[in-house]
């Protein structure tokens, strides 16, 4: 079995920052694993200029990876399958095989997952054409495909707005953004898309029903205040209903001293600066624990 001082799960902004911080503080052996083929996490699919000084996600990651400390052993296309209480993880990768790795400290930076349509009280059929907003973002920016229009977006948070902008710019008509709250939930800079593309925002509303037997044909939007229902035709429905921090792997571990969480698996962030800060804190603390353990 291999050993390392610090294991970091997730090579998104949080994990990369934590790895750099720990290494630059003096940590010798950092293993950073990520299930995707490249480091960067969700930012790899963010084509909008919303990071740092007007950078896109991939540009920001490129900057973050510049002069990356050599002590960090980056294992991409590698998934952590389990973490045990005695500080051993099982890693799986096509190239790296199945391996056990013992660590002293663990930084968990696995990000978050989107709330799926199935978790909502959606009446109606279960046709093709219902995606989470992140899936459509991945489809457009990593697979270069545009979903079939017109689209309806449930949720006007940042991701809903960003996708509304991107779909409109790509020629996919957005028939409505549906928001259950009284007003739009996203950052002002993302709300600009509503004006730019003259997108209808339906507040105090929710998608109450989807229809279409095999392929999505439309949705029913219910306005909570007026009680009225509207039929809106669409071929694609984006669910931008929020996120759940991804902590499945650490369920049952409790909160041992050797475990730090940072980034979206700790709490979902809307700004990159908060993620960076948490990554730095986790990296510093992990190294401090390692050093005090050694002394």
């Amino acid at each position: 079995m291999k050993d390392c001082e610090l294991l970091i799960i997730g090579a998104g902004v949080a994990g990369l920052t934590a790895a750099r911080t720990a290494a630059e503080s003096g940590c010798h052996q950092v293993v950073l694993v990520d299930s995707k083929a490249k480091p960067g996490g969700v930012l790899l699919q963010c084509a909008h200029q919303g990071f740092g000084q007007g950078l896109t996600g991939p540009q920001y990651i490129e900057q973050l990876l510049r002069d990356f400390p050599k002590q960090v052993e980056l294992q991409c296309a590698t998934t952590a399958l389990s973490i045990s209480k005695d500080k051993v993880t099982v890693l799986s990768g096509a190239k790296t095989g199945l391996q056990r790795l013992r660590f002293q400290e663990l930084i968990f930076a696995a990000g978050c997952r989107e709330i799926p349509a199935g978790a909502l009280q959606l009446a109606g059929t279960r046709p093709e054409g219902v995606y989470t907003a992140g899936q459509v973002q991945e489809m457009m920016n990593l697979q270069y495909r545009v979903p079939e229009g017109p689209a309806v977006i449930l949720g006007s948070g940042d991701l809903g707005l960003i996708m509304a902008g991107q779909l409109s710019a790509s020629g996919c008509k957005v028939n409505a953004l549906v928001e259950q709250r009284e007003k739009c939930g996203g950052l002002p800079r993302n709300q600009l898309y509503l004006e730019r593309y003259a997108l209808p925002l339906l507040c105090n509303s929710t998608v109450s029903r989807v229809y279409g037997e095999r392929k999505l044909e439309g949705v029913v939007v219910h306005n909570r205040q007026s009680g009225k229902e509207y039929h809106i035709p669409c071929r694609t429905l984006l669910i931008a209903a929020g996120y759940t921090p991804e902590r499945t792997l650490i369920q049952g571990l409790g909160a041992p001293e050797w475990l730090q969480l940072c980034g979206n698996c700790k709490a979902v962030h809307s700004m990159i600066e908060g993620v960076i800060q948490e990554g730095k804190t986790a990296g510093t603390k992990a190294w401090r624990n390692i050093r005090s353990g050694v002394c």
């Binding site: 399958l81 799986s92 096509a94 790296t96 391996q99």
Partner: peptide, 27 residues
Amino acid sequence: EYKARAALVAQAPDYGEIICHCEDVTR
């Protein structure tokens, strides 16, 4: 179990690549 799984992945690397993370389903 770990040993059998490791042997399988060594023999057929596609068993090492996890596609579905929730259910642990490989390529």
